[in-house]
Simulated scan of single mutants.
Amino acid sequence: MRPPSGPAGLIAAALILAALPAQSVELASHRAAYRLSLDTSRPNQDVESASGAMLYEVVDRCGAWTVQQRFTLQVVGRGGQAYEMSSDYATWEAADGTRLRFRLRQATDGTVTKTIAGEARLEAVGGAGVARLTAPEDRELGLPRGTLFPMIHTVRLIEAARRGDRVLAAPLFDGTSDDGPQDTNTVIASPIPPDPAIGHAALRDLRSWRVRIAFFEPGGGSQPDYEVGIRYFENGVADELKMDFGEFAVAGKLAEFERLPGQCD
């Protein structure tokens, strides 16, 4: 079947997915550290090297999920010029996927380049809603029907993968843009069976899927603004990342992994 295209198709797909019964996806509370490096499998224009780290922590708060993500990347151009990108991102998301609080701070060479903060609510998963920003300025954004927040999007993605679906399309609002939700199109590859050779014991007995998520401006053209490739396990843990920034791409490998107690455990 041809994937939905354009905002109408994305919203219709999101409404259908929101109505489907959950398949008992249990996301793991955990802390993961990733080593980042330049992805040399594709041309990188004027970038000679890139290296850094990302720390990701997600905790089940019994009725809500909290996420903290810290990212640092040092980039060196072919002419020798160098700069450092960093970001600090945190969210609180209700377990039913209808409320989100968010805060983002991005910097280049220590100078803050973007700050976003606020909260968002949906009438219901798959319903319309509103986001109220407190930074960079007080502002309200309408959220169209079909919008998903990030944790429920991960749940729906894993549910789709378990069903054998190959595409998940939905508007996604995660608080990283003050322009509102982005249209997303996720392509899901065939399942990878459990692998006893995986270095992290908590992942060895689980299936996984490689997915590629493309982000588009609402009503935008056919080319995505940003793409990310992830290998997700059934518990929501990722051990491989590929972030395509357009001019260059970065690969991430899981270096350290720790299961964390959730408040419902």
Results as ranks from 00 to 15, higher is better:
residue 2 R to H: 13
residue 8 A to L: 14
residue 13 A to L: 11
residue 19 A to V: 11
residue 23 Q to V: 10
residue 25 V to D: 06
residue 25 V to G: 03
residue 25 V to I: 15
residue 27 L to R: 08
residue 28 A to S: 09
residue 33 A to S: 12
residue 41 S to C: 05
residue 42 R to L: 08
residue 44 N to A: 15
residue 46 D to R: 00
residue 46 D to H: 06
residue 50 A to P: 14
residue 58 V to A: 04
residue 58 V to T: 03
residue 62 C to W: 09
residue 64 A to P: 04
residue 71 F to M: 02
residue 76 V to H: 05
residue 79 G to I: 07
residue 80 G to M: 10
residue 92 W to F: 08
residue 96 D to R: 12
residue 109 D to C: 02
residue 110 G to Y: 12
residue 112 V to G: 09
residue 115 T to V: 15
residue 117 A to W: 05
residue 119 E to P: 00
residue 120 A to Y: 04
residue 124 A to W: 13
residue 131 A to K: 07
residue 132 R to D: 02
residue 142 G to V: 01
residue 142 G to N: 14
residue 152 I to M: 06
residue 162 R to K: 05
residue 165 D to S: 13
residue 167 V to F: 06
residue 176 T to N: 10
residue 181 P to L: 08
residue 183 D to H: 02
residue 185 N to K: 14
residue 187 V to Q: 00
residue 188 I to C: 07
residue 191 P to A: 15
residue 193 P to G: 02
residue 199 G to Y: 00
residue 200 H to Y: 04
residue 201 A to R: 07
residue 201 A to Q: 04
residue 201 A to I: 10
residue 202 A to K: 01
residue 209 W to N: 12
residue 209 W to G: 12
residue 213 I to A: 03
residue 217 E to G: 07
residue 220 G to F: 02
residue 222 S to F: 05
residue 224 P to L: 03
residue 239 D to T: 01
residue 241 L to I: 05
residue 243 M to F: 08
residue 244 D to V: 06
residue 247 E to Q: 13
residue 251 A to W: 02
residue 255 A to F: 00
residue 255 A to H: 00
residue 256 E to A: 15
residue 256 E to M: 14
residue 262 G to E: 11
residue 265 D to A: 13
